[in-house]
Structures are given as structure tokens and as C-alpha cells.
Design a protein around this nucleic acid. Structure first.
Lengths: 148, 148
DNA sequence: GCAATTTCTATTGATATCAATGTATATAGT
DNA sequence: ACTATATACATTGATATCAATAGAAATTGC
């Protein structure tokens, strides 16, 4: 008898075909590339666009809620802010209501960049939705929402 | 009159709620955390699990098709292989049929690690599917597949 | 008011992701 | 065979992602 560990090839195919995590990572990579390419002329990645858009509020939000909204680790958010701060598109200011925390505020330059990127997002997203069967976009949004 | 650029808050909310790319990134992050946590005792991340599982084939595959299967950049794959090679779980060998290319092969140790991780994946994925409404998992898989 | 706990964020180290570029080999056109 | 093009992969540099840890300030229990 053999001690060799064998995972049946059929099992491999099953995991490949059914793993929701793998499917989500694949789709996330593909969509990231799509929007990164489209937004490149505006100088933003898809993540930077989403982050900056989430900061366009009447009142600058603290970091915690923004990280939660984007379903990302707080340390990831800290790192993601660095290049945006460096370019002068986002200010990280003290929170007068809570001296532990910071507030994230778009600068006027940041708003200019973001508004230039907005029509690119609109056309790219419209083309994407059009490429999906009727109704699938909304259904997909709801299904994804249930995971995050 | 003012030159200030203003993106209406309503536009921000619309982008947040409808952007498929953002929804996909959020879901991908959430599922990555779920499986990373579950697989940690096995010493694998979700991405390493998917990658190693994709290498469990009758014949060791070249890098290109593996990168395509995972919908990742080829340079990402090269980088992802580094820690697996270092730990002796994957061998990168010359391709006798094409001297430009390499073949990726699980080592016996790699198969041991992978087979230990497999039941963790099974239980984690079963629990995940159970948490979704009946039929949504399969539908979601198909919708995600259409994107990647 | 004080101590214990919790919350908010930063830092460090490891891995993941991709663009840009370069090198080697294979393939196609002639 | 020769040249031009295409393919396969590595390297570098920038950003993204998270765990582990630590510090500071707020909150809670008393």
C-alpha cells in the first residue's frame, strides 16, 4: 500500500467550479482591470475612485465608517490614503469631537480630479451593464451585497 | 458665481449603491477574510489554496493557463509562487516542450498541505452556501463567471 | 473620580496586485 | 534559412491587502 496523498482530479475540478471565493476573486480582478484601464487617464484606480467618492459627503467622515463601507481593513485604508494625501487630493484632519480619530476630507483639487473621473465611470459602467443580460446587474448587486 | 466643483451627494450615493466594481471588491475582500481565517490553521490563504488546487492535475501546467484560470496577471502569479516555492510546496520546473516556459508542479509536501486544507474548505463553503437563500449560490456563480 | 475596557488609528512585516520593461524562445512569412 | 512578429516569463516599482502589535483617548463600571 502507498502513503502517497492523492486528491482526486475530480475534486480539484469541483472546487474550481463551485468555490464562491475563487469566483469572487476572479470577477473582482477582472472588474478592477476594466475600471483601472478606463480611469487611468483621470489618474485614478478603481479603488481610489471608490474611496474618494465615498468621501464626497456634507461632513467629512472618520476612518472607521469608511473602512466598513468599503469592507476593507482599517490598515488598508490608512495605506490607501497615503498616495492621495501625497497628491493633495485628500486631507486627513483631526476630529474635534474625538481626539483619537481623524476625519477624511476631499480637497478642492481632489474634487476636480473626481469630477473628471465621474463621466468615465458612468460610461464604463453603462457599457458593463449593457454587456450583461437584462436584469442581471441588479440581481448581481443584491447577491454581492449579501456577502459583504 | 463660484468656480467650486461640486459633485452632488446624490451622485455619490448612486455610485456607491450601483457600482458593480465596488460591490465586487467588497464581496471579494469579505470572502477572502472568511476563507483566510478558516484556512489559517492549514497555513494557507484563500489565494494559495485556489492556486495550489489548480495545480493538482495529471500533468503540471505552464504558468500562462494558470494565470488565465485565476484571472490574474502573470506577474502576480510569479509573485504568488515565491512563498510556495520557498516552503517546498510547489516546484517550478523547465518545460521540455517549450524552453521559454515553466511548468508548475505540486510537491508531495504541497499535496499533504492541500489535502489537510480541503476539509476546511468544504465545511467553510458549505456553511457559506447555507447562509445564502436557496439557489442564490449557483446563480451568483454564473453571474460572476460572466464577468471574469 | 479611577480603573478596566473598548475604540480609533498608526506602524511593521508579509503577501497580493498590476504596469512597464526586458530577455529568451518559438512561430510565421518569405 | 532569415527576418519579423508573437509568446512565455522575470524583474522592478508602485499600490493594495491584511495580521499582529502598540499607543492614545474615550467610555464604562464602580
Amino acid at each position: 500500500m502507498s502513503n502517497a496523498i492523492e486528491i482526486p482530479y475530480g475534486t480539484t475540478l469541483l472546487v474550481r467550479d463551485t468555490c464562491l471565493c475563487l469566483h469572487a476573486q476572479r470577477a473582482a480582478r477582472a472588474l478592477a482591470r476594466l475600471f483601472d484601464d478606463a480611469l487611468r487617464p483621470a489618474g485614478l484606480t478603481n479603488g481610489q475612485f471608490s474611496l474618494m467618492m465615498s468621501l464626497n459627503r456634507p461632513e467629512p467622515p472618520p476612518m472607521g465608517p469608511v473602512a466598513k463601507l468599503l469592507a476593507m481593513d482599517q490598515t488598508t485604508l490608512t495605506a490607501a490614503l497615503k498616495p492621495l494625501q501625497r497628491r493633495g487630493w485628500v486631507d486627513v484632519i483631526a476630529n474635534p469631537k474625538d481626539r483619537r480619530g481623524r476625519l477624511l476630507r476631499l480637497t478642492p483639487e481632489g474634487r476636480t480630479v473626481l469630477s473628471a473621473a465621474l463621466p468615465i465611470w458612468e460610461s464604463t459602467h453603462a457599457a458593463l451593464e449593457k454587456s450583461l443580460p437584462e436584469g442581471n446587474a441588479e440581481r448581481l448587486r443584491q447577491d454581492l451585497q449579501a456577502l459583504a
